[in-house]
């Protein structure tokens, strides 16, 4: 993902070298879905399936990930819930993808219901989800309007699937990232896992890659013209000596965390939490971030601001 500057300066966080660079992120449209079910397990199952194949807008229709579990007393129907954040380049793209995904992954899942999780959104920025999939009810669907919120009730074989008609959207931030290098693959992974855990404790952010971690960090373009992105060779330890590497001498593995959020502050706060959690782990030799020289996105997260 990185387009490294020729002579990066390094800062220190404890013993760990932090490259004086920035993560470059871009605006994106975001929605939050609250999926509830009779048990936390089924809410998590529906949310996990909904977030399948939603790692990167490079090749997926959306980026999506579980944000957090929601206790029963905080959900609209008083059942355990799971919040999902979903991101796409356009509001229309987000609506289309979420209609498909809620229809295929939440409607189908036992006992679930799906509610909007972003409020105070102007009507023109809302996306229709329940209203799009209600036709599955084949004319037997019913709606219930309460205040300015409409809930569609679609008959299914275990009762009803309830899905809110409209969901709010905001312009969020996509592409926040950290790259964490260690003296071994295990050390790098443990540190990155610690960073992921810290970031997931923050609100309004989602880490769309498997377990929140990317091992295949990418750069823009490729020698193959059809490819929009290809392996980030400067951070591949097996290519040291073949390419202009960015790896310190004792770095044998790098993992990347990519995160999207509902606001600049949310992403920055999560990156700060992740950076400090990773730096506190043993055998971490480098933490850096990916950018494109400022050409890709207007949001720049300077690591020096996070120390």
């Amino acid at each position: 993902m990185a387009d490294p500057s020729p002579t990066p300066q390094t800062l220190k966080l404890g013993r760990v070298a932090v490259v004086d660079t920035f993560a470059e992120a871009f605006p994106i449209k975001a929605a939050r879905l609250i999926i509830t079910a009779d048990s936390q397990q089924w809410a998590d199952t529906a949310a996990t399936v909904l977030c399948g194949n939603a790692t990167s807008v490079i090749a997926c229709d959306i980026e999506a990930a579980i944000e957090r579990k929601i206790p029963a007393n905080e959900t609209p129907d008083g059942r355990p819930g799971t919040a999902v954040l979903a991101f796409a380049f356009t509001v229309d793209g987000l609506a289309k993808a979420l209609q498909n995904r809620v229809g295929q992954c939440v409607l189908t899942c036992p006992t679930t219901a799906c509610y909007n999780g972003l409020f105070d959104c102007p009507k023109e920025k809302q996306i229709r989800i329940g209203g799009g999939i209600r036709y599955f009810g084949d004319g037997f669907q019913r709606s219930k309007k309460l205040g300015d919120r409409r809930y569609w009730r679609i008959p299914v074989m275990d009762g009803e699937f309830t899905c809110e008609d409209y969901f709010g959207t905001v312009t969020g931030v996509a592409g926040g990232n950290l790259l964490i290098g260690g003296t071994s693959g295990t050390a790098a992974l443990r540190a990155t896992e610690a960073a992921v855990a810290a970031m997931r404790s923050c609100r309004d952010v989602a880490l769309p890659f498997p377990g929140g971690i990317v091992r295949s960090g990418s750069k823009v373009g490729s020698k193959y013209p059809k490819l929009k992105a290809s392996t980030n060779d400067a951070y591949c330890p097996t290519l040291r000596g073949d390419v202009a590497t960015e790896l310190p001498k004792d770095c044998r593995a790098v993992y990347e965390i990519v995160l999207d959020g509902l606001s600049f502050d949310a992403v920055q706060q999560a990156m700060r939490a992740g950076l400090h959690a990773a730096a506190a782990q043993p055998n971490v030799v480098m933490i850096t971030a990916g950018n494109y020289g400022g050409r890709l996105g207007k949001h720049h997260f300077h690591l020096r601001d996070l120390l």
């Binding site: 609209p76 129907d77 008083g78 219930k144 809930y151 009762g159 309830t162």
Partner: peptide, 28 residues
Amino acid sequence: ATTIRPHVVNVLLRTVAAQGVKFDQRLL
């Protein structure tokens, strides 16, 4: 039709409860 607990009833009951109307909590 059947015996069931429609999820939307939870939404309705919680809305009413939030406004201070008292009812048998077993309904939840």
